[in-house]
Structures are given as C-alpha cells and as structure tokens.
Nucleic acid binder design. Structure first.
Lengths: 123, 123
DNA sequence: CCTTGACTTAGAGCGCACTCTAAGTCGTAT
DNA sequence: ATACGACTTAGAGTGCGCTCTAAGTCAAGG
C-alpha cells in the first residue's frame, strides 16, 4: 500500500509550505507530481523522498538553480550519474569549507564571550 | 602612528565593498566614522576591528537587525556588558545548532555520493 | 582654468527565495 | 440548492542584504 498524500499533508510531513511545494515544482526542482481526477496533486513516497533530499541540499546552502540542475540530471536518466556525482561532490566540498569557516568564526565569537565573562566577574 | 584608511582601503582590507561599508554605517551596525576636512571617511584601527568582528557575526548568520542591537549595546557603554554577553551567547547556541544540523545533512549527502560512486563502479 | 578621480548623499534597483492574493473549480455535507 | 473547504492557477508582493546610479563636492595634476 503506497501512501499518497495531499499537498497539505505533504507540507505537514516535509515541513515545506504547500506554496513552496508548488513553487519548487514550477521551478523545476521537482518533477510534475501526479494528479487525481480533479487535478489535485497526490504526493507519493518517491516524491516525499525527493523533497526530503532537496530540503537537505537547500539547508546546506545549495541555491535553487543548482538544485534544478540536479533535478534535470535525474530527469536525463542513468547516463547522468557521473555528473550528479560531480555536482554533489562539489557541493560537499563547499559545505565542508563552510563548516570549517563557521567553526573558525565561532572560535572568535567564543573568545569575545569569554572576554565579556571576565569583565563581568571583575564587576 | 595610528593608521587611518580611506573607505576604498578599508574596503580592500576588510573585503567589504565601500557601498556596504556606508550601508552598515547608515544601518547602525557601525558608529559614524571620523571624517577629514573635506568630509571623507577615515577608518581607524578601532573601526577596522569593529568591521572584522561584525563580519564574523554576519558570516555566521546573524541578521543585520541583531548586529544593530549589538552595536546599540556597545554605544550604551559598559553597563550593557551583561546584555552583550547574553546576545553573543544566544548567537553562539544558534551557530552550534546550525553546525550540528549542517553536519547531519552532510552525512546524508555523503551517503548519496557513495551511492552514486558504487553505481559508477558497477557501470 | 579644467580635467580627473576619489569621495559624498539620497534613493532606486536587484537577486534570491519564498509567500500571499485573487479568482476559479471541485467534491461533499446540510 | 448552496455553502464549505481544500484545492487549482497566474501573478503580485515581501524581506533581506546589499549594489548601483545620479548628481554633486573637492583636491591635485597638467
């Protein structure tokens, strides 16, 4: 029994607003979702899985247009595996670099916090 | 010999465009910078230090309006140390949480990378 | 004297990623 | 029959953080 959700339920499950889900589809981040007889979207497990992954890509700072490129590679089928790999590896490097930079910035912020803490202790 | 830089030099040194430096000042992230006789800004070491730190705050995702709040606390003087500390500690918690989430998302992305790698190896 | 170039201001414009609105279509409950 | 509520579309609006433009001032060099 494959689950199929309405857009409202897909929104609840994914944490993405139904407005944003339609926007993602229009923008080509998601393949056109199946419709029921009255033209309403029905989200299947595969759609939800796609949404989950694209949400991770977005949450790690991948811009919309690059997620779209990734979606286009998926649409092109199995011969695009190498390109998908390259895209994800490039993104991985960017995320790792961003993590390192943030960690470094955090050090400085913590140094400042300690500075204020010591000031407080001395009145 | 205290250095005082033109806005163009401050931009080069800080990596923030001169447009953005003026914007930061207008927006209250920076105290009004000293001017020379002809009204041009002259950036001192203290200004550059402030710019460096605010850049770290921005780079770690602190919104403009919260950097402004921090700047206002500095303007209020020494009696705002406790509030500055609280603001920075709250930000620290947010950054740590963000780092953890990003690391988790990175795991999933790397899982996907390995998935494609194995697919590639098997042709 | 005049041009050049770096600065000044106020304010318009831009790219991103949604977010919301208006007007319309369904299926169901009263 | 009709009202309700969830959906549909196209397209307008929003918030953020700059980024750029236009028009003007000023000091120095040719």
């Amino acid at each position: 029994m494959a689950t199929t959700l309405t857009i409202a339920d897909a929104a609840r499950v994914s944490g993405i607003s139904s407005h944003a889900l339609r926007y993602y589809e229009r923008a080509g981040l998601l393949d056109p979702v199946d419709r029921n007889e009255s033209g309403h979207r029905r989200y299947g497990d595969d759609d939800l899985e796609r949404i989950r992954f694209l949400t991770k890509l977005r949450a790690t700072g991948m811009p919309i247009r690059e997620v779209r490129r990734y979606a286009e590679l998926i649409k092109r089928g199995a011969d695009s595996h190498a390109e998908r790999l390259a895209l994800l590896e490039a993104h991985r490097r960017a995320v790792v670099a961003q993590l390192e930079e943030t960690a470094k910035n955090l050090d400085l912020i913590e140094w400042k916090i300690n500075f204020y803490r010591e000031r407080m202790e001395q009145g």
